[in-house]
């Protein structure tokens, strides 16, 4: 099996879906001749031509709006917004149209589009080039909100997103784009949207995370096991909406202690929803308050402070120890 980066795996997903379904089109800023600012769409224009790989003006609202029109009329657009921080410009199109055309037309129209966009920090870019605002999309009824964590699940989830009959927001952790390689089968592979995954078994504490934070969380789990004999269970959510709370609730019932990790600001962030579900559905099993090591309630800092802002293995391990120190 070939080893690929997330960028290559996403490219594979796009290429194969475009090969097997000529309704699939790609559009966005610099996705054609330039192959995308992060090279995710590299080579697609040479293979599929300008009719199926469209370079657009710098107009996020038009990119999203055009994709909605294409989707309603039978195509399967996959549009790219260059950085998720630019996607506020297309919010209205996604919120007022993409997410609710099916509902508004009583099911007569569906919007089978994917909006791909890189999110998150770790690449020394400031502010809206680094922030994580998945909570906005997760709070919008009618959308699916997917965040892969590695090359293999990114490829499989993107294929599922393209085949989904409804709009899917696909956040790609740019810190993971070229961070490591994984074996990715050439043969088609999909993963169901709306299902989380157990990525490490443990019995003392449950760590819930997604996207770029999966790696530092696993790192923390490995350190805790090696140095302190603490066995942490790690759950990768993969989808924020619809949120699969079955797995993490079951895990919390087993371990009684939970830590939620994300790089988005803490207040009103995705972690709050997870804790709220836990205290509703697993309350009598919880033995300690749920800690949330997350990004701070600050605008994403300039690069010199970036590493202090992002949760890392040490901060996650500290939160785990605080949680375990609470007497049941």
């Amino acid at each position: 099996m070939p080893k690929m980066t997330m960028v290559q795996a996403l490219n594979l997903a796009l290429r194969q879906e475009m090969e097997q379904d000529d309704r699939v089109v790609v559009l966005g800023e610099d996705v054609g001749r330039d192959g995308g600012v992060f090279r995710v769409t590299d080579g697609l224009i040479d293979r599929f031509g300008e009719d199926r790989v469209l370079d657009t003006p710098l107009a996020e609202s038009a990119i999203a709006g055009m994709s909605i029109g294409m989707a309603v009329h039978g195509l399967r657009p996959v549009c790219e917004i260059q950085f998720s921080g630019f996607s506020y410009l297309n919010f209205h199109q996604i919120e007022c149209h993409a997410s609710r055309l099916r509902w508004r037309s009583r099911g007569r129209f569906t919007v089978p589009m994917v909006l791909r966009t890189p999110y998150g920090g770790g690449v020394r870019a400031l502010e809206h080039h680094s922030e994580s605002r998945e909570a906005f999309y997760a709070h919008m009824p009618g959308l699916k909100m997917v965040i892969p964590s590695g090359p293999r699940n990114a490829r499989a989830l993107l294929v599922s997103a393209i085949r989904d009959p409804d709009p899917v927001i696909f956040f790609e952790p740019k810190a993971v784009y070229r961070a490591f390689r994984e074996e990715v089968p050439e043969k088609e592979e999909t993963l169901p949207i709306g299902r989380s995954e157990l990525v490490r078994e443990g019995r003392h504490v449950t760590l819930i995370t997604y996207g770029a934070m999966v790696r530092p969380t696993l790192e923390a789990a490995a350190q805790l096991s090696e140095k302190d004999g603490i066995e942490a269970e790690v759950i990768d959510l993969l989808t924020l909406a619809p949120l699969d709370d079955t797995l993490f609730t079951a895990s919390a019932r087993k371990t009684g202690r939970v830590v939620v990790v994300h790089e988005a600001p803490r207040s009103y962030g995705p972690g709050a929803e997870i804790v709220a579900r836990l205290v509703e559905k697993a309350f009598y099993h919880l033995e300690a308050p749920v800690r949330r090591p997350t990004g701070y309630d600050l605008i994403f800092p300039l690069f010199s402070r970036e590493q202090a802002y992002l949760p890392n293995a040490a901060r996650i391990a500290r939160a785990v120890k605080e949680t375990l120190a609470v007497e049941a």
Partner: peptide, 11 residues
Amino acid sequence: KHAGFGAEIAA
């Protein structure tokens, strides 16, 4: 309810 401000208060 999903990802609403009630979640933050509960958390």
